[in-house]
């Protein structure tokens, strides 16, 4: 197997937040004592006046950010996905989403990626939990370049609460730095007429591999990067129903209420094709290599290919 040519999406966050802070002195980082892991170090060094560290007190960090936002700041509360989506969930709901304040929740270690840390640190429910709250936008970028672009988009001219999920490990480059991204607009990686694969986050690179194998077998694959799970790109899903015979969703997230659910909500209403969902089988992870955790939940290139074959029979 080739060595991975890529970088972690959390590194992209660390770089993008510096670019944002440079351009707009109202951009703040609110750290919760895991800035080192979340790559806010350069921001802290460069803009100490725009930096706050509340210590191991995420709920307070979120409330403090809401207060900053009422005074014109654009705070990025930074922590791990499991804490950013659940430890401070009610604070996000009450003080950020309900008053619709311009607070961003930027979280590393999404999904199974903190694999050896075990279940306590694997945020496998974050996207689903947060997409349930009104006013919240939910984003899970798939590689370094898209993460960089989407952080900049979220912090520059996109008003309102945004949850951004990054991950720990290096992921292959899918895009170049010249690619452009719009929040709420799926990226079409390939057009096709037989089957659609919709994914996001670290798993997208596996879908690219699966697509290549399917294409080799003569199957025409439409592949979408649904980096914004909410508001979901409804048009892109409707196009997939019209253009292909079935949709497969693939995610590093619990099978309940994640990307597969969001896509199915649309398909269930309009009909026209089947959806097969590949994701975490409503079970906790454990300390294990990332690949093993995915295998145990059938989130593999093999399973994507087999699922496509089965659906097209």
């Amino acid at each position: 197997m080739d060595t991975i040519q890529g970088l972690p999406t959390r590194d992209a966050y660390g770089k993008a937040i510096v670019a944002l802070g440079e351009k707009n002195r109202n951009v703040y980082v609110v750290d919760c004592d895991i800035g080192k892991s979340c790559k806010t170090g350069e921001f802290m060094q460069t803009f100490p006046q725009q930096y706050v560290n509340v210590g191991i007190a995420e709920q307070n960090g979120c409330g403090l950010a809401a207060g900053l936002a009422t005074c014109g700041k654009i705070p990025f509360v930074t922590t791990y996905a499991v804490f950013g989506s659940m430890r401070m969930l009610e604070q996000i709901r009450q003080e950020v989403c309900y008053p619709n304040l311009n607070v961003k929740i930027a979280c590393s270690h999404g999904g199974f990626t903190p694999a050896n840390d075990g279940a306590s640190h694997q945020g496998i429910e974050d996207l689903g939990v947060l997409r349930t709250i009104p006013n919240m936008t939910v984003i899970a970028p798939a590689d370094y370049h898209s993460a960089y672009a989407l952080v900049k988009a979220a912090g520059a001219d996109y008003y309102g609460p945004v949850y951004l999920r990054f991950t720990r490990d290096a992921v292959p480059f899918i895009y170049s730095e010249d690619d452009t991204f719009e929040i709420g607009k799926a990226k079409v990686l390939s057009e096709g007429s037989d089957i659609t694969i919709i994914s996001n986050g670290d798993i997208l690179s596996r879908c690219v591999a699966a697509k290549d194998r399917l294409v080799e077998s003569g199957i025409s694959v439409r592949l979408l990067d649904m980096h914004t799970i909410k508001p979901i790109d409804r048009e892109a899903v409707l196009d997939s129903i019209a253009k292909t015979r079935g949709i497969i969703t693939v995610e590093d997230h619990n099978i309940i209420n994640g990307l597969g659910s969001a896509v199915s909500e649309i398909v269930a209403e309009v009909g026209g094709c089947r959806v097969s969902r590949i994701g975490i089988q409503d079970q906790f992870g454990e300390s294990a290599p990332y690949e093993r955790l995915l295998e145990k939940n059938f989130i593999t290139v093999d399973n994507i290919v087999e699922t496509a074959m089965r659906m097209l029979k």
């Binding site: 006046q49 409330g63 403090l64 950010a65 809401a66 207060g67 009422t70 700041k73 003080e95």
Partner: peptide
């Protein structure tokens, strides 16, 4: 939760 938001406002005043 309110006190946390007040802390954010007071911090913004100091920084600005």
């Amino acid at each position: 939760q309110g006190l946390s938001t007040a802390v954010g406002m007071a911090l913004a005043a100091k920084r600005d």
